[in-house]
Amino acid sequence: MSEAALRPDIRRQAAWYARGPWVSILSVAGFLLFWFVAAEIAQSRLLPGPVAVVQYVINESLHGDLVFQLGITLWRVVASFVVAMIIGSALGLLMGQLPAVNRALDPWLIVLLNLPALVIIILAYVWFGLNEAAAIGAVALNKIPNVIVTLREGARALDPGLDEMARAYRLTPWSKFRNVTLPQLQPYFAAASRSGLSLIWKIVLVVELLGRPNGVGFELHLNFQLFNVTAILGYTLTFVAVMLAIEYLLVQPLERYTTRWRNKPV
């Protein structure tokens, strides 16, 4: 195909991207409409419509303890995330840089990667009791192998030329880490945190369901026993909204800031 023939396509595609947010909003609105219609047709307690669910969320936030439960779960997500990122990054960097460490820890990494989340959670509760530390530890342990794998790749991809530059100019270890190593690992940190947050919040719910007296997971379990689908959908929707807010208001702006040097036009 000649360049001239391609150009209108490209232009149409560009216009499509420019209308990006509208496309997303339209897509979500379409889903809500589908849900609304389905609920109207079903007329069942087991499939409440969007209006009923939103009403439940507003009611529970104002008069119930939805905000408290949400806060508890969010706290567990953040705590497990921080623990997993710190331990996972440290181990991943060590394994990427030192082949001996990598050989020693690699079998354990593969075991941990393939150990079902449920097994880790049950064992943590059995051995360390039904407490907060066991819960957070179990979630972190599920995420750590993921972080290790990603950061190990990052450590292997470090540019030896920049490393030489840092050594020739006698940078202090801290200065080298902050100015040379860390910026090179940024995309790997971003990838690990992206997949991390979504994985962690799912596992936190399981941990809460199995052994915590509060949190979104506990509420879901309670409402499952009561067959209260409205509450289940309400809690799910609220937490998804919170995670979306974190992604768009925290993760993406932060990423734009840390990669501001990339591909800026002259």
């Binding site: 030329g161 920049l162 530059m165 006698r170 100015n179 040097w261």
Partner: peptide, 25 residues
């Protein structure tokens, strides 16, 4: 002894401005 090294490639840090690259060393 203080060292200055000019490599075959510039080897500037792409995530630091030119000024920051110089200030760093």
């Amino acid at each position: 002894s203080r060292l200055g090294f000019m490599f075959q490639e510039p080897r500037l840090l792409p995530w630091r401005t030119v000024r920051q690259n110089i200030e760093l060393v």
